[in-house]
Amino acid sequence: MQRRDFLVAGAAAGALALAGCSTGGGGFSLAEVIRRLLTLSSQRALARLMAPGGFYDSQIAQISLPDRLGGGRGGSVLTRVLLSAVVRDRLLKQVNRAAERGAERAAPVIADAIQSISPEDAASLLRGGGSAATGFLQARMGDALIPAMLPGIDEGLRLFDSAVVTDALRLATGIDFAGLRDDVTRKASNAIFAEMGKEEADIRANPRSTNDPLLIAALGVL
């Protein structure tokens, strides 16, 4: 452990001791601090994203349409039809509503991954600041959210206003339903981590907002 990590870990452990937040065996778990930080960040982020309009209304998480949708080999008339504000807005709302369905399936996968945070990683993540813990979790999970979310997004795309998707994909060459589904799923996965990172940074900046003595004690040291 680096000297700075050691000092931060020692200070945090002291703060936890003062707060009475001990773990079994008389020790103090910095890993538990990071797990609680990530758990609360994910809960807040997912609750907002799974609410009606959660993705669509978010400046961070809104799912954009694939670049190829509206282009391709179609003639200029078809392209103008596809790029019309009405059609694009309806399709944009639909893919974002479908992302809400996918987010529901992401929650248990993220919760399981959070429990894998090790004590060895905890000290550096604690001092990392900002969204360090979320970034670490995203890198460790890789594409794990995609197969979990894909069935929900597939269902959402077929369920919500399916006629507009059918018409749009029929007019737009170069992308099919599966391509749209896969694009939305990947973007939704990244959006979840982006929202989590924002929540983590907010919690670090104001740990008292959590009403969690463990987080208040550990993050207050920093």
Rank of each mutant, 00 (worst) to 15 (best):
V86C: 03
A205E: 10
M196C: 13
C21G: 03
S29G: 14
L83W: 05
T39R: 06
A19P: 08
S84L: 03
I60S: 02
N96H: 10
S58Y: 12
G71A: 15
A122Y: 04
R44F: 00
G72Y: 11
V81A: 13
G24S: 12
G70C: 12
V87H: 07
T134L: 03
E32V: 04
D143V: 10
E155R: 05
I175P: 13
I146D: 09
S162I: 08
E104H: 11
L18A: 15
Q138W: 00
N190F: 06
R35S: 01
R88M: 13
G25F: 08
N96K: 13
A47V: 04
L180F: 01
S76R: 14
V8F: 04
L137P: 08
T173N: 06
R204V: 15
G27R: 13
A45I: 03
A163I: 15
L16R: 07
G197V: 06
I34E: 08
L7D: 00
A122H: 08
I216R: 00
L82K: 04
S64D: 09
A132K: 06
D5N: 12
D67P: 01
L215H: 06
A106V: 04
A13K: 15
D176H: 14
P151Q: 10
N190R: 12
L222C: 05
S116C: 03
Q59I: 00
F193C: 09
A98E: 07
G25R: 12
D154I: 04
G128M: 14
L126V: 03
A217M: 09
M1K: 02
Q62T: 02
D183K: 04
L92W: 02
G128Q: 10
G27T: 13
R80Q: 14
Q59C: 00
E100W: 01
A139D: 14
V95L: 11
A45N: 02
L157A: 04
T23K: 09
A133W: 01
S58A: 01
